[in-house]
Nucleic acid binder design. Structure first.
Lengths: 249, 249
DNA sequence: TGTATTCTAGTGGTCGGACCTCTCGGACAC
DNA sequence: GTGTCCGAGAGGTCCGACCACTAGAATACA
């Protein structure tokens, strides 16, 4: 909760927040040019930019050089790279990310089975077909894989869970995007996705959940195998504070 | 994933990211004074501040006026108010937040039952006792309620899930912190927490999960009752783009 | 001596105003 | 028509001055 501090940053954030909450600003809308807006708020352009930067970092605003600044459109997203950075900072283990993903996506699949609509099922089916068609092209395959999971998230009817999933998966790719899987694995993967699709379409929530869980567990062990012995274990150094580190920077 | 753009912002972000990943910068460490650091990176202080602002918004850096800028310490946190803002923007329904919370915390409880340590159990027990002791003081009660759930998250051994939970609960409080519950409800609530505690302590994962789910479902309906007919339904306006909105701002 | 007060160096926060770069659409040439 | 060019307008970067806060050192006081 942003404090209504004297801080210019928060003043800007709160101002825009109010505009959004009152409906005066909606996704896709453009805010006034920085110079003009700053004049109107009686603050410097620099301060305004700080506030906008804050909102942009959280995925609420979308700043386009030479064009303008807009309220974020499209599906809600938490700051894309945030988890990835936090991971580097706190030494997240990849099994933790997989676990989080497994839990989220399993439930997402179950919800999708309960609430999905025909239109979602159609998209899922399409992506599954594309996956089978691209088992020899890992790059292409991955695209449809991602899309498939994304459709499930949409079908769940809960944009918050969808956003959380997106955050985790993007951090996961960030960590290891060089895993070139073999075609044979992809065939198996496609089969599993097809099973998930069928479970969801037949509105069998518990089966959708368990197959999704199996799928992600397999995916994890596959990657673990491939990248064994790479990332050093999380550090257990004793804590310190106020260590001056300019000489290392 | 931050592009290694010419953009100064990303240059700063990537620089610091690299420092973190290489271990040259760790939680609690201080980065050099802005003026000095900017000189070293051959960029203006303004640009440096933009980058730091970005990192601060994501909870990676901690800027303290008059003191210095530090790498975030303590438990990992996604940008605190981000979900709350996104919620206002995309019109999240409160049932969606509750659902997300229910899913996350149920699994968290199950994991805590599997992995929790004596030290965690002790803290949980203590908080439960405090809850019983403050059933007549909703403010105080709430503090221990929050702490109890937080200990469970810690005990789960998965900081990522813990961070996600923290994000959701803070957004939830943000939405409605004025619900003054009655003492009788608090007594029931404390009983449930005690049950959760016992299930976890006896390492009964599935029971811990189901009781937690029950607890949160009850909490939701209690709040729904209290605040019925307040928030207007999510808008269904047709989409537009590039609507100039300066005259409303 | 011990305690309260004041001062000050260091660090982040704000300002404004100059100048650079990017986009897009209209004017113009073909 | 079709393609090229150009300029208005928007964000991006920089500078340098000054403000505001914090913590600890220096000082005054009891």
């Amino acid at each position: 909760m942003p404090k209504s501090d004297t801080h210019m940053t928060m003043r800007v954030v709160n101002h825009i927040r109010t505009l959004i909450e009152s409906g005066g600003l909606q996704p896709g809308d453009r805010i006034p040019p920085e110079r003009e807006f700053a004049r109107k708020l009686h603050i410097s352009r620099a301060s305004l930019r700080t506030g906008i930067g804050y909102l942009a970092a959280m995925g609420v605003m979308d700043v386009r050089h030479g064009v303008g600044t807009f309220v974020a459109d499209g599906p809600p997203e938490l700051g894309k790279s945030s988890l990835s950075l936090l991971g580097a900072l706190h030494g997240f283990q990849s099994w933790q990310m997989f676990e989080a993903r497994r839990i989220l996506e399993s439930e997402l699949a179950a919800l999708a089975a309960e609430r999905g609509r025909e239109q979602h099922f159609a998209s899922m089916s399409e992506e599954v077909a594309e996956m089978y068609a691209t088992v020899d092209n890992p790059m292409e395959y991955l695209i449809h894989d991602v899309r498939f999971h994304r459709v499930i998230a949409q079908a769940s009817g809960n944009p918050i869970l969808a956003a959380l999933m997106e955050t985790i998966t993007s951090a996961l790719y960030d960590e290891r995007r060089k895993t070139a899987e073999r075609s044979r694995d992809l065939k198996e993967s496609a089969d599993l996705h097809r099973e998930i699709y069928r479970a969801i379409r037949s509105r069998n929530a518990s089966e959708a959940r368990s197959i999704m869980e199996r799928h992600l567990t397999m995916a994890q062990s596959a990657q673990d195998l491939e990248a064994s012995g790479s990332t050093p274990p999380g550090n257990g150094r004793p804590p310190r504070k106020m260590r001056r580190s300019s000489d290392q920077v």
